[in-house]
Write a protein that binds this DNA or RNA. Sequence first.
RNA 1: GCCAAGGUAGCUUAGAGGCGAAGCGGUGGACUGCAGAUCCAUUACACGGGAGUUCAAAUCUCUCCCUUGGCUCCA
Length: 459
Amino acid sequence: MLKVYNTMSRKKEEFKPINENRIKMFVCGPTVYDKSHIGHGRTYIAFDVIARYLKYRGYSLFYLQNITDIDDKIIKRASELGIGPLKLAKEFEELYFLDMELLDVTNVNYYARAMEHLPEIIAQIQTLIEKGYAYETSTGVYFDESRFEDFGKLSNRSIEELNVSRVNPEPTKRNPGDFALWKKKDEEPAWNSPWGPGRPGWHIEDTAISETYFGGQFDIHGGGLDLIFPHHEAEIAQMESATGKKPMVKYWMHTGFLNVSGEKMSKSLGNFITIEELLKEYDPQVFRYFVLSTHYRSPIDFSDDALKQSENSLKRIYKLMDTVEKLLETDIVEESETDEVYHKILKDAKKEFLEAMDNDFNTPIALSTLFNLIRDINKGINQENISKNVFKEIKNLLNEFGSILGLNFSFESSKDDLKDELINILVDVRGKLRQKKDYELSDKIRSRLREVGINLEDK
RNA sequence: GCCAAGGUAGCUUAGAGGCGAAGCGGUGGACUGCAGAUCCAUUACACGGGAGUUCAAAUCUCUCCCUUGGCUCCA
């Protein structure tokens, strides 16, 4: 039974989609005003694995993500650079897609840009005005929080608290906690609307988009922890007021923050790491492993040491896979009386792995079951009692786990052919030298190869 | 101040009333010409302090201490 932690109830709940087998999942995408950072990477890898697992479990998933391609930060940045805001957004959007591809985040079905949904945004604002949840002033259209009694239910705040905390409220608003649906603007960039030229507020694009593709209710809404308030709170108010249907979302899922060496990542602290920079230093698989080694809701602390640990852990898996693939090429027995024992080990390992994933996508536990399995297999390899059939099953199971996690455990064989040939020649020569017990020269070859990143290991 | 998430072995992390977990790292041993990988053992009487509930508490309750984040834009 799959259990999912719901931010709304603050506990794990049994997962049951609204429509039997079909899942509608919306995750807040980036505002494309700058390069994506490793915090984005963490969140989108986490939801990528969630998506993979839901599909693995046989659900038919539609994963929708929005792209915020117009907002104040984009406009500010664009004017600094002297280019149009939409052009700037387009450029960073392309970089975002590239980063995601490099990180193997490949399960989003559709990216919906805010600027391509202006008619829907305007229509939803009009509905809110007609139903009396929103009002127009000289500066814009605002949502009237006092009309929505559930306001604050996701972030566990009262309306009084929300009102107190606002500094410098916009003077034409009725309540300090009211938020903008449409901002009236005379200067560019601005779009026409029934209320004159202007731009949409931050929260309205998500509900306009999700209503367009999903209707007023859907299964999963995800994003970073920081979006709970005010963003998701505002979304609930807009959508439930506009459609009259509650709840808007059945399961709210939020990822924990990524810190860098114990501190929040920010430009002013100078510890801001983009995905582009990350990938200059580390393999995408290493970063993915690092992300999955912590539960998606927990804070995760990025450091070189932690990444190094992840790399070493991952090597242990690669190493086993490599050994298994090599042994499959040899002429070991097809079957053995130990097969039954290993069938059970594999069956149990799979069961434990899936139980971990069923428990709110607990990837750290899933990985630990994987390592328990690896130890059992290594033991068997040392004792030379594993048959070819079992090795095939091991390979299949590891690949199955890998595909759920988005990790590729099979060794890349796409190396340069000539390079491979040259290495083989050196390995052959070294083997002959070792037969003649010329260890001095053979060790020299090995250490020189290591200097250029090629590790030779004698059996 | 209010809200939230945390404090688990040297490090990184799971777990959540009763079999002391996983990885990384350190040490010793087996194997090896050596190294590496692997296995075994060890580091390990692990759960921030103090009370309480219970036959039994890392796990529940209370209280205190500390860390981080949010309350303005943020994945």
